[in-house]
């Protein structure tokens, strides 16, 4: 076994898994480089890129000034110019300063140019709440991005996906956004041979027959905890990890709903106009006659995320609320 495989098999944190994925991609393809605020000397706002500057140098681990629109746009241009940039935005809230570039350029170039130009870049960012960072650092806006044709949206919820999704994302000719939930960075798990994962399908993380719980990113753990509690009450849940938020893998969801006849969607976004709304609508469109109950939803409360711990926890989807929602549809 080479040392490289030895590390690949060991338990890693989610943070290390993303770092390994970046390192691996940079070694495999010299067109790949990482750029963003404080990715180099500081080591990344969440420590993801720590040590990479020393290995790859300042050209390929590129610190940028505070200028989200400029450096995201530059990443799009570099991708058009033949590079394969990985652009890191510290958090999804800051990505709004680059939304113009992401929507009006990255997502449209291929179409507007009649297929002549594309933007094959990866944009990574942190998302989600739970760390008392209040209303400008905690939102889950990946559902907004999942609204945009032309983008592919990934939401790795496991260490294996954190390790495995980057390489196929870089190989993909479309712009790919990867959302890393901030509460997952210290989670540990096995990347078990996953230097490449598929970026088209949802995964069933737990099988059951009474209800389908659909979750993604930060809510996967919530859904699995709820499923454990439901099992104690003799309710067995299928837990689907969406993994890919755009395009959605309808087939996996519908196959499960046709078996369980009930569904609850758990989404850390706000309920109105959310990804959970889209999934509920698709289930009604495609599996209405298989349903024994209306589709349930557990989402974040419709407030800007508050700072105080007890208020923040009350605003976020909790396992207890998922259990209640499941009991309501199973009753």
């Amino acid at each position: 076994m080479t040392p490289a495989t030895a590390t690949a098999q060991a338990e890693l944190t989610y943070r290390e898994a993303v770092r390994e994925a970046i390192r691996d991609a940079m070694r495999r393809d010299e067109r790949v480089f990482l750029m963003g605020e404080d990715v180099g000397q500081y080591g990344g706002a969440f420590g993801v890129s720590l040590g990479l500057l020393e290995e790859f140098g300042a050209d390929r681990i590129r610190d940028t000034p505070l200028s989200e629109s400029a450096f995201v746009g530059a990443g799009i241009g570099a991708a058009m110019g033949g590079m394969r940039p990985i652009v890191e935005i510290m958090t999804v809230n800051f990505s709004l300063l680059a939304l113009d570039q992401i929507l009006n350029n990255a997502a449209t170039l291929l179409h507007m140019s009649g297929g002549q130009f594309g933007a094959p870049l990866v944009i990574r960012m942190t998302t989600g709440g739970g760390r008392q960072l209040a209303a400008q650092h905690s939102h889950s806006l990946e559902g907004w991005y999942a609204h945009i044709p032309g983008l592919r949206i990934l939401s790795p919820a496991t260490v294996a996906d954190a390790r495995g999704m980057l390489w196929p994302a870089l190989r993909c000719p479309d712009p790919v956004l990867i959302f890393e939930h901030g509460s997952l960075y210290n989670a540990t798990g096995s990347p078990a041979g996953h230097d490449s994962a598929d970026i088209t399908t949802a995964a069933i993380r737990r099988t059951g027959s009474d209800v389908t719980i659909v979750a993604y990113g930060g809510t996967l753990g919530t859904a699995l905890t709820a499923a454990d509690r439901l099992a104690e009450q003799s309710i067995s849940a299928d837990v689907i990890d969406l993994r890919v938020l755009r395009p959605l893998d309808d087939a996996t969801i519908m196959e499960s709903v046709r078996r369980t006849h009930r569904a609850v969607v758990v989404d850390e976004g706000w309920r109105s106009g959310s990804l959970s709304a889209e999934i509920a609508a698709r289930i009604t469109e495609q599996a209405f006659y298989d349903l024994d109950a209306p589709v349930g939803r557990v989402c974040s409360a419709e407030v800007p995320m508050p700072y105080a711990a007890h208020l923040e926890q009350a605003a976020l989807p909790q396992p207890g609320a998922v259990v209640d929602a499941v009991r309501a549809v199973v009753a």
Partner: peptide
């Protein structure tokens, strides 16, 4: 506010940064 209490200048919603 740093404590996230109801008597904070942002009623616990803001914290240190707000």
């Amino acid at each position: 506010e740093m404590y996230g209490k109801a008597t904070g200048c942002s009623r616990g919603r803001g914290g240190s940064m707000h």
